[in-house]
Design a protein around this nucleic acid. Structure first.
Lengths: 103, 103
DNA sequence: TTAATATATGAACAGCTGTTCATATATTCA
DNA sequence: TGAATATATGAACAGCTGTTCATATATTAA
């Protein structure tokens, strides 16, 4: 590793780099943050955190199209941030509780 | 508010909406998550979390151009996730510690 | 069956992002 | 001074994102 400036200590840098999560984890984290980066998806999560809901409830609450809600939910579902339960003709979305957000 | 499907209870929905952070806060949160959504910026934070660094150290550690590091740092700085100290010809970047990340 | 309702999905498009390249600015040291 | 080094910034471009529209699928109820 060629040193770029006077402050660089390549050996120390190598050690610090080892404590950075590996690429796979960084990418997973980035994907989660990327899902949380949309106003609509954040609002969906804040709503689901209070009560499980179907698409049409979210649609009405957020004043966006049903398609937008559904696409947003798919993103959250792919990251396993929300899960799904069927209830008759409704699909109920449930937020995945973490140990810190449950009370 | 016109009801869109059988499950909707407009009055309850209104109450739940009141507990969703207001637009300003949602947008701030989205902006922070958006900054955390890039592999490069995440790695920068994981490195700065271990030790304050100048641009050229980060440049070498991450194997991206100096420009990319600098642009990434600007994003983090604008959100006050990192701060800056001048040290001779170097600009030292410091991560802002939260109460939970300090130990 | 058929109609109505609930959800999913593909296409398309405008807008945004992150990178690199080129260049400007600022500091140090000879 | 001037040269070398460190950082910032603007332009440009490819790639990605989120939305809407149109449509498909699935369930219920008549």
């Amino acid at each position: 590793m060629q040193e770029k400036c006077g402050r660089v200590d390549s050996i120390q840098l190598e050690k610090l780099l080892q404590k950075v999560p590996n690429s796979e984890n960084i990418t997973r984290m980035a994907a989660v943050f990327q899902a949380l980066q949309s106003d609509t998806r954040l609002k969906i999560l804040f709503l689901l955190n209070q009560k499980e809901m179907c698409v049409c409830e979210l649609e009405q609450a957020l004043s966006v199209t049903q398609s937008a809600v559904s696409h947003g939910l798919r993103t959250l579902r792919q990251l396993d941030l929300v899960r799904v339960r069927r209830e008759g003709k409704f699909t109920i979305f449930i937020i995945l509780q973490t140990s810190t957000s449950a009370h």
